[in-house]
Design a protein around this nucleic acid. Sequence first.
DNA 1: ATCTTTGTTAACCAAACGGTTAAACTAAAA
DNA 2: TTTTAGTTTAACCGTTTGGTTAACAAAGAT
Lengths: 197, 197
Amino acid sequence: MTTEEKIFNAARIVFQKKGFAGARMQEIADEAGINKAMLHYCFKNKQLLFEAVFKNAFSQLAPQINAIFSSNETIFEKIKQFTHSYISFVIVNPFLPPFVIQEMNNNPEFVKNFFKNENSPNPYLLIDQIKKEIDLGIIKPMNPKQLVLDIFSMTVFPFAAQMMVKGILHLDDAEFNLMMEERKTTIAEQIINSIKK
Amino acid sequence: MTTEEKIFNAARIVFQKKGFAGARMQEIADEAGINKAMLHYCFKNKQLLFEAVFKNAFSQLAPQINAIFSSNETIFEKIKQFTHSYISFVIVNPFLPPFVIQEMNNNPEFVKNFFKNENSPNPYLLIDQIKKEIDLGIIKPMNPKQLVLDIFSMTVFPFAAQMMVKGILHLDDAEFNLMMEERKTTIAEQIINSIKK
DNA sequence: ATCTTTGTTAACCAAACGGTTAAACTAAAA
DNA sequence: TTTTAGTTTAACCGTTTGGTTAACAAAGAT
């Protein structure tokens, strides 16, 4: 593993745990097992190191989601694939959703630019498809954006608010993961059940 | 308005916008229009000022939620009341959900203690009721905690991930609020529709 | 009138922070 | 063997940050 990779991995861990403002360059250096000056040698400054981590996090997810959204399957099938695929991904990367939400909240300008320039998840193929299937009478009339929001809510929220969910429902890690495994199939079933004519 | 109130309101604004780590005592003082030393005179230190704001935020919500959960209504009615009541509340306090999620993520120990000591939303009345109604054959067999999680997901997520939702779905503030108004009724209808026998 | 308590400020401080520098180390090219 | 280019480090620096201090002002209390 190169030094740059060591730094990158360490930065990902620390940024995800503490956020941009709470992360300390020294802590990242310690986590990577290298001298603090190397951080600046490899990534110039804190902001650029952060952006590298943030972009990488998104770039792991966006292609997966877009691939599903732009396929030729029915919506019902896409909903099934998305929930299964997304939950599988974030079970392995559980810190990602709260991290993204946090930095969206703290630094909206950066994130807005990010969404314009980088390849971010694009739901408009899905939205168009929903419109068509409504017209064809396959699913009930509704605001397509609400359906997209429902799908994201049901899949992303439990991970985004992980600590709160575990606290309120008294779940340990094992129970939480078990529930998330269950959700891989149940979410899609419920949503489909509530929208099909 | 007393000086203490001025500080508290200013702290709420700055903490919700920047998070604990990102907030600056000087910025809070400026926002309150008073000298920085007054912060320490009134609230001792940053941590205690933050805890005051955090506890207050939760104490506004918890009683509302618990009142609904512990009433004598049917689950269907409780779901309707909760979604309507919660969305109405956070439309007026939109920074609350991301704020809570962020600080849960950054400072889990503090939050765990908080949940044990303060009056936090207690879903177990609701969970017991769900179990009973499943046994009575009113709703489909399922894990009651999953249903509770569904309800929270559908209501809380759009606000928790507000910036992301607006970005991905290309919504301005007006469109976003319009969608949330619509959700006050549609969420409950959808959930009820998908669980009733 | 004088003392005490409470509220308020400007000036200050030590520690922590992000970032820089210059030197030392390494290994491959000349 | 020497040069050269790329790595890595210890030590340092200016600024920011949370927090303190001492002086001061207003208002009751004695």
